[in-house]
């Protein structure tokens, strides 16, 4: 929160927490992935002005979707996590916006809004490049492969 003014570009900043949850969901089993998603979602809900639960539900949905790939790819290769950062970031933003709209927040689904959502998702890709290797190193057993592209 405090750093966002310094890393934002034209009022848009990357979303660290959803990217962290996506990365963890690719590396951790379902129950742990959902646990991290719940914690991250509650943090966002507490520090945000949105109705409570919006980001927790969005985070759980994204974590469940990302966890589909758990054990289905080589975790030491970063290509898939980076490729998934964009669609899952889009999913997170769209779900959270739909939930906010259902709960009465007034906004219009316009071209500029879609452009904004896409910009945020694009900014999340470099964040994944930083966070995924970090989580992989923290998560991997000593005998597993070194990290590669």
């Amino acid at each position: 929160m405090s750093l966002t003014p310094y890393i934002s570009w034209q009022t848009v900043h990357p979303n660290f927490l959803p990217v962290a949850v996506i990365a963890l969901s690719l590396l951790k089993p379902f129950s742990q992935a959902m646990g991290w998603a719940f914690v991250a979602g509650v943090m966002l809900d507490v520090f945000s002005g949105a109705p409570f639960g919006v980001f927790t539900v969005s985070m759980l949905i994204v974590a469940a979707a990302a966890n589909f790939w758990y054990d289905r790819f080589t975790p030491s290769v970063i290509i898939l996590p980076v490729a998934l950062a964009l669609p899952y970031s889009l999913l997170f933003d769209v779900v959270s916006l739909i939930l906010q709209q259902i709960l009465g927040r007034p906004f219009v689904w316009s071209g500029s809004l879609l452009q904004l959502i896409f910009s945020v998702a694009l900014m999340n890709i470099p964040v994944m490049l930083v966070l995924y290797p970090l989580f992989y190193r923290l998560n991997r057993p000593a005998s597993s492969q070194e990290f590669t592209l």
Partner: peptide, 15 residues
């Protein structure tokens, strides 16, 4: 002094 922004890109609040 502004000490933080809303963590979400679609809510325009500051602290």
């Amino acid at each position: 002094q502004v000490i933080g922004n809303d963590p979400n890109n679609f809510l325009y609040t500051i602290f």
